[in-house]
Simulated assay, not measured.
Amino acid sequence: MWNFLKKNEPQTESRRRREENRGVQSPAVRSTQRNQREIKRQQRKLKREKQRAEKRENRKVQRDLKREVRKLEREERKIEKEMRRSDRRNYTKTSATLQQHLVNLRKVKAICNAVRAQAKENEKRRATKRGDRPPTQPTESLVTLMRNASEVMGAMHKQMPPEQLANIIQEFQTEFERITEAQQLIMVHS
């Protein structure tokens, strides 16, 4: 009969202890637990987003490296072709310059392939050890690898700037055209 008074009366210290012992939680404790669960859920979501962003970044680096290697291979074939032409025409200076550039180009290509292999290895490690380390570590190592590769490429460009190589190739082509014209004139007059 007096139960309605118990519900409406202010909570006393002893009543609160009894409810805690029975497992009844106050609204403040429940909302705190709810907030903690929400925070954990958001942290997991952020972790997944970081992992996705890292995967995207890694794929982008892989594509860029692959593109760079293909570009270097095209350049290598072009230089080899020009070297064969200059060897046939006995242009020793041009041939020597092209050989040096070819060696440097192959070094850069090897470095790019090594960076690409290390990037793949980092991606495999990251996939197998998801929770063991923070997701930014592979990205940071890729950044350092890319920085090293760009420094090597910069050093190669200092030794033989691309503009200078283009000028040498253009000079070779003009000399080649002049010589073929001269040979045609000699054949016509003889």
Rank of each mutant, 00 (worst) to 15 (best):
E177D: 15
V69F: 03
A182W: 05
R133W: 05
K81A: 11
P27R: 05
E151Q: 14
F4T: 11
I111G: 00
R17Q: 14
V108W: 01
A166Q: 15
R178W: 10
T139K: 09
R106Q: 14
E38K: 01
S141K: 13
S190E: 11
R89E: 14
I168V: 15
E13A: 13
R15C: 01
E38F: 03
M1E: 03
E151D: 12
R17L: 12
T174C: 08
L105Q: 05
E151N: 13
R85P: 01
P161V: 11
I111W: 02
R178L: 11
S14C: 00
N122C: 02
I179G: 03
N104F: 02
Y91R: 13
P135E: 11
A155R: 15
T144A: 11
R77C: 02
P161L: 07
L142S: 07
P138N: 05
A117Y: 02
Q25A: 09
A149W: 04
R89T: 02
A127G: 13
S31G: 02
R56D: 07
K107F: 05
N104K: 03
K107V: 05
E140Q: 14
K78W: 01
K107C: 00
T136E: 15
R126N: 12
F4Y: 10
D132I: 00
R126E: 13
K60I: 03
C112P: 00
Y91N: 10
R17I: 07
W2G: 09
S31L: 12
V29E: 11
N122T: 04
M83V: 11
R125M: 12
I79Q: 04
R30I: 14
Q170T: 15
K7Y: 03
N167M: 13
T94Q: 08
M160C: 13
R70Y: 01
M153Q: 14
G154Y: 06
I111H: 06
R44Y: 04
E73Q: 07
T180P: 00
V115A: 14
R52F: 02
Q11E: 14
E140A: 09
D132Q: 06
R52K: 12
S14Q: 12
N3K: 09
L72K: 08
R88W: 04
G154D: 13
E49Q: 09
R22A: 13
S95W: 04
R125V: 10
V24A: 07
Q43N: 00
L105D: 05
Q36W: 00
E20R: 08
D87N: 06
L105H: 08
E57V: 00
F172L: 12
E171F: 06
I168C: 06
V103K: 05
F172R: 05
R84N: 09
L46A: 12
S26H: 06
F176W: 15
T174D: 10
S86C: 08
Q183Y: 03
A28Y: 02
